[in-house]
Design a protein around this nucleic acid. Sequence first.
DNA 1: ATATTTTACGCAATCGATTGCAATTTTTAT
DNA 2: ATAAAAATTGCAATCGATTGCGTAAAATAT
Lengths: 343, 343
Amino acid sequence: MKKVKRTTIYDIAAKLGITASSVSRALNNSSQVNEKTRELIIKTADELNYKRNTLASNLRKGHSKTIGVVVPRINQNFFANVIAGIEETTYQKGYNLIICQSGEVHDKEIQCVNTLINQHVDCIVISVSADSYDYQHLQNVLDHGIQLIQFDRVAEELETLKVINDNEQASFEAVSHLIENGYKRIALLEGPQNLNIFRQRKTGYLRALETHKVAVIDELVVENAWTKELGAEATRKLLNLPQPPDAIFASTSDFSALGVLEVANAMKIQVPSELGICGYSNEAFTEITSPSITSIDQFSVYMGKTIGNLFFQEIGNTEVSVKPKIISIKPELIIRGSTAKKG
Amino acid sequence: MKKVKRTTIYDIAAKLGITASSVSRALNNSSQVNEKTRELIIKTADELNYKRNTLASNLRKGHSKTIGVVVPRINQNFFANVIAGIEETTYQKGYNLIICQSGEVHDKEIQCVNTLINQHVDCIVISVSADSYDYQHLQNVLDHGIQLIQFDRVAEELETLKVINDNEQASFEAVSHLIENGYKRIALLEGPQNLNIFRQRKTGYLRALETHKVAVIDELVVENAWTKELGAEATRKLLNLPQPPDAIFASTSDFSALGVLEVANAMKIQVPSELGICGYSNEAFTEITSPSITSIDQFSVYMGKTIGNLFFQEIGNTEVSVKPKIISIKPELIIRGSTAKKG
DNA sequence: ATATTTTACGCAATCGATTGCAATTTTTAT
DNA sequence: ATAAAAATTGCAATCGATTGCGTAAAATAT
């Protein structure tokens, strides 16, 4: 399988009795070649089934026209969408994507980042893993003169380009919506607080309660409930409380919200009349549960496109360091059946 | 951002008063370097924050330790899962993934493949787009001595490594299941017949009918219904027939099946007693609709891992051409509420 | 027809790492 | 102590494409 000798510009040059320089120039649309020879070169390149060796080209040029992406899981809806968005914008400009998944493991994340540095990618796009505790590896990216764009889950202390959702505002709106619809005891399922996105969502929750002069009840705030199972478990506990909540905001994910719904159904507690439910992410299935689940759309594909465009805006920049810039995308509350108390 | 001069093996060599050769050897665990100098080299490499330039290394070595993946859409569950599986197995062995999406467009697919050839990837993994009409570009991959692995949607006439699902068998089992559960008039929502997977599913459907001596009714076979909307539309037509079907096999996707379910609900037709529904792919949501939808699990992540392993099995192979090999994964029928006529 | 500008192409170095071969040093055997 | 074997290290070519500089040839101006 490996013995095939691929044709190079030297082969083309030899066949035509000219130099590789000319071939290179012809193939790169340089104005320094005669139109006739160019045509000839392109024709024979075609005949010999020539394909440029991007490795060699990139080595010489000093860049790779490649963008590295590191996400916790490729096959998680939100990330898959973001990646699709990035791919769409960058592909058009001839950039390729190298994708790695950290599996939510800090050490693998570091490995991934290092591999990408080795690959001489022009930019690294990353959403940090849940158990990240330091960001030396990201600083390292910068130190190697590689553009760094963080998205969604970002290390705030690092001054880089960032594309994020306004989690606090979304959360604020969701909880306000619950309050306005008549829910009084609103529980919060929160995610790991070392991730800023979950901290922000909590802040939004607290701010909404405060704004509407609703007291915070500690026992209604449940830590680390971001899978369906954990959401279900939390719900069982909450609903068995002497004074159970009348609404649950699963700020972690729609999967968690789904767990809530299933437990409510199992316990014959009416949704939305006895219990309001709001999820996060606007997964496709939130539309088809019964009742359908109110959620928050993060515009994930758009987020990906924004990341791509941001990269192209900034690469023209010859400065040694890029000014940190934060683009915040406002998520949208999608109101559905699960919060229609007075509907 | 681009002015940063990265340290090379020459920098390390210079600092230590030795040659780059030794540095290279030390960094590659060659047995040809003294243990002490190796330690010294590694130490200073570390101090200088050296990162190997993979471009240069690969250029010299003649391979890229990179696998190219082309799928119609990254953010489609099935493909995202396969990619995640591939990544998992290949990452361990130090291979990287370059991901492209063809967007179901033949021309873009060709472009993607060419880009990957240019990148000198060691292998291309592809699931062809829905409107593919010829496979010259894939033949081209082989001609360049690049390993080619097709999966799921494959060009049968091309003799390459293939990892597929046994669609026909799965389809046969699904339809048999419907028949055994008492459904008599079973409709088929079929996908574009230029894709072999959809042809196979149809064949399985026909074979099941034949085996159980059920007559084929042409008007119950609906072409090209592979989105939720098209599935819904087809269902409206089917259910308004003088003699409507009592079951619908949405062989295209679970989304299509979802469309069926929604229309049935809207028309107040009882599922599963009046209408049985079976989807394809076992999307997460099939579990949570009411009733839940019977579907077929394709083991997508496992499929990805299989692809990765297949690659590693075959690269040892120094033959110029690899013997075509087909690995067929047997999907599993997941029986749920939507087909429980006699349940 | 001669001088000047343009155009087209070749030469050779370069990007950074790897590796076969040769040269040198160290170790082991006699 | 000397010869032979083994371990280290250096030299220089190589992977394939790009590009600054120089020169020859063609085109234009005088």
